[in-house]
Nucleic acid binder design. Structure first.
Length: 491
RNA sequence: GGUCCCAUCGUCUAGCCCGGCCUAGGACACCAGGUUUUCAUCCUGGCGACAGGGGUUCAAAUCCCCUUGGGAUCACCA
């Protein structure tokens, strides 16, 4: 190992953290941890129109939620700061001046309108739409004089003839002919630096050794490599990660589903499951393991093993994986994770839950095999929190019960049988064992017994084991609900 | 349209770099059974792919070429 590995994740705080961005961060992080290097965070906020502090905070928060940590960044600082591009404008300006002085860049005075015109003409002739280098030939003295006189100008990079080979650990070397590379704008007329310019300045300043980012950046790479050369710096090695695709095969967008990491957090996906699933978008541990830990990722991750082709984001598999993680939790852990969702659904206050925490853990335990994400719990257990006389009845559940003419009598008979047997507490196992015998004695078929019972207690057609429900509800509520249901069905 | 990237079951992928162990493995989904008071979990089984065509080779999913298909990108946005 020669120079220490330094990689970075450089989000733009112009929106919520994209799920694909989270994966990019994850792979960079894993690479750094695997190689004993550093992972840094940099905020690319050179678009003042769209960048906000709120998004920046949310992005950092999302990464922390996933368990991704960074060695240097805007919040923790570090030796190569600032880690926020908006705080580095003087540095960029100095570099731009240096490049203009050395002839690697030049002032361009073309107006928006002229540029548009040129593009139009090129389009009409079916030519490539690039800058026609109108200002490239201006003498530096002339240009300097016009700038000094206050004329509006941008700074463009002067692309030399030749070709550039970019080292890519995922795709192999990628070759670009310079005729295809535009004399791109480095500094806008208002003096602000552009993305391709800042990225290189910062990656140089931060001594970044490897740049792993989405494939959409592949075509930017020659521009950046050329800039490194103009600066007499060694370019980093690259790795362009396959895109995450929607079900339409296009770059994942809001059209085809949730794209923000926050959405999955809000829906109650366990963070470890999100991490694991993200790994699978482009990488695999081996030929048979889908579920693996972050430690296994770090121990085995290699950028060269990353898939080249785009990965369709499969929400079904994601949800399955969430369920796998959720089911591995202890009921206590699961209860803690579900509690905020129950509160958010207004089923109970935090104080309510705390007051009967052991009970809530039991509730969660019975639902554990039935939910995949925390957010699914509230609607499934809502009946436990409703008043006994006002349990909401699903149309489907009522319909099923209407098919059993003796339902009212069955409920009353069972209530009478049950009352003395739960007077001193509920023994779910014993009741469960006795249930079929009772139905048989009464000459009632099982569906004609269980369907009305479930309607009375839960109001829904599907749910947890009925005797667990009886235990959860407790004797008083069970008897009350049976009575209410009998009346309601009779009336 | 130019440039660049990509191509294994419907989806995520293993295998490809270093041809033979591949009559291509696993997972999700789907289908069929089993367990069960419903649902879910769980268990068993099934369906299902090397885009097409050339070449190299004793041998190609694996190497080369072409075709086709898909995608990314072409801003004073990142």
């Amino acid at each position: 190992m020669t120079t220490p590995v330094r990689v970075r994740f450089a989000p733009s705080p112009t929106g919520k953290l994209h799920i694909g961005g989270a994966r990019t961060a994850l792979f960079n992080w894993a690479y750094a941890r695997r190689h004993g290097g550093q992972f840094l965070l940099r905020i690319e906020d050179t678009d003042p129109e769209r960048s906000t502090k709120e998004f920046e905070v949310a992005i950092l928060d999302g990464l922390r939620w996933l368990g991704i940590d960074w060695d240097e960044g805007p919040d923790v600082g570090g030796p190569c700061g600032p880690y926020r591009q908006s705080e580095k404008y003087p540095q960029y300006r100095a570099v731009a001046r240096q490049l203009v002085a050395s002839g690697h860049a030049y002032y361009c005075f073309c107006s928006e309108e002229r540029l548009e015109q040129v593009r139009e003409q090129q389009g009409a002739r079916k030519e490539r739409q690039v800058y026609d280098r109108h200002c490239a030939a201006l003498s530096s003295a002339d240009a300097a004089a016009r700038v000094a006189a206050g004329e509006s100008a941008v700074v463009r990079f002067r692309v030399p003839p030749g070709e550039t080979v970019c080292v890519d650990h995922i795709r192999g070397d990628v070759r670009f002919a310079h005729e295809e590379v535009d004399d791109w704008v480095m500094v806008r007329s208002d003096g602000s630096p552009t993305y391709n310019f800042c990225v290189v300045c910062d990656d140089v300043d931060m001594r970044i050794t490897h740049v792993f980012r989405g494939e959409e950046h592949l075509v930017n790479t020659p521009k950046q490599v050329l800039l490194y050369r103009a600066l007499a710096k060694t370019p980093p090695e690259f790795g362009h990660l396959p895109l995450m695709l929607g079900t339409d095969g296009k770059k994942l967008s809001k059209r085809t589903g949730d794209t923000a990491l926050q959405d999955y957090r809000d829906n109650g996906y366990p963070p470890a499951a999100v991490l694991n699933f993200l790994c699978l978008q482009g990488w695999a541990l081996d030929d048979r393991t889908a579920i693996f830990s972050i430690d296994q990722l770090v121990a085995n991750f290699d950028i060269a093993d990353v898939q080249k082709a785009g990965a369709v984001f499969d929400i079904d598999k994601f949800k399955w994986m969430a369920g796998e993680y959720l089911r591995k939790e202890t009921p206590q852990q699961l209860a803690e994770h579900c509690a905020p969702f129950v509160v958010a659904a207004k089923l109970a206050t935090p104080a309510d839950l705390a007051a009967r925490w052991a009970w809530f853990v039991e509730v969660v335990k019975t639902e554990q095999p039935r939910i995949s994400i925390y957010g699914e719990l509230p609607s499934r257990v809502a009946y436990l929190f409703q008043p006994d006389e006002a349990v909401a009845w699903e149309a489907e559940a009522l319909e099923a019960v209407r098919k059993h003419p003796g339902a009212v009598q069955t409920l009353r008979a069972y209530r009478a049988w049950l009352e003395p047997r739960i007077a001193n507490g509920v023994d779910a196992a014993a009741l469960r064992g006795a249930a079929k015998g009772w139905a048989q004695e009464q000459g009632i078929k099982l569906p004609a017994f269980f369907q009305p019972l479930r309607l009375a207690l839960c109001g829904v057609v599907h749910g947890a084991d009925l005797f667990d429900v009886i235990a959860l509800l407790g004797p008083r509520a069970v008897l009350a609900r049976l009575e209410h249901a009998a009346q309601r069905l009779a009336g």
